[in-house]
Design a protein around this nucleic acid. Structure first.
Lengths: 113, 113
DNA sequence: GTGCTACATTGACGACCGTCAATGTGTTGA
DNA sequence: TCAACACATTGACGGTCGTCAATGTAGCAC
């Protein structure tokens, strides 16, 4: 009732009565899914590598060696990131290029405001 | 080599050469631990309830019912949040009060910049 | 003391996760 | 057509997670 926003904010709102905040379970599940994708050091590493590629993105062939994992493992982690909406993939001939989705990152950041 | 920061930023840096970003594994593990604590809808709910308490924090007795889980389960999730550095706990007589740690939230937000 | 309340801990269960070897799929180039 | 390459998928393994019932611990009231 007293919550100013329908969204989950996890903010430092002062002195609002506990338990009164309305909480959207669907939103929470969506956020949790995003954070779950970030809950592995290897995926954080992969995401930072992809992000470092900027607009060009990053080719999988350039991600396997620096991650220190096998090619199937890297492919698995990229799939997790993709299904969490954090990256997109694009086929260019033989190679697959990955890009970050800034809006999704922004969404997760906002939830921690 | 070309990375401007020693930190992991996962930022939309444009056109940096892929694979050149130096990556601190300890930092990544620390971040991953934080995100892992956020990877469950129940914990997000609990965290939002605690945050809604502001400076007063929130009493566990006010968290059990809205979370829809058993008391031991809530206690378990609060322990996870505490060990991830997202909340602190304080004993006031019979009751236990939980508070958020804004610096930790800020740290995680920064990692998504 | 006795009983009650608030919370933490333990133990057990099924479910999910991270990892790699093996294999599959589709493209490139000869 | 054939071989090599880039990547995805499958299957299997041990490990961790979320959950609750049962139990433990500590403070409050009488």
């Amino acid at each position: 009732m007293a919550s100013p926003s329908k969204q989950i904010t996890i903010a430092s709102v002062c002195c609002a009565p506990v338990g009164s905040a309305d909480f959207d379970e669907a939103d929470a599940a969506e956020l949790a899914k995003g954070f779950a994708a970030l809950s592995d050091p290897v995926r954080l590493h992969l995401l930072s590598l992809v992000a470092a590629g900027g607009l060009n993105g990053a080719c999988v062939c350039d991600l396997v060696e620096p991650s220190g994992r096998s090619q199937p493992t890297v492919s698995h982690h990229l799939k997790v990131l993709r299904e969490a909406g954090l990256v997109t993939s694009e086929k260019r001939g033989t190679w697959a290029w990955y890009h970050v989705v800034p809006e999704r990152l922004q969404q997760l950041r906002t939830a921690l405001a």
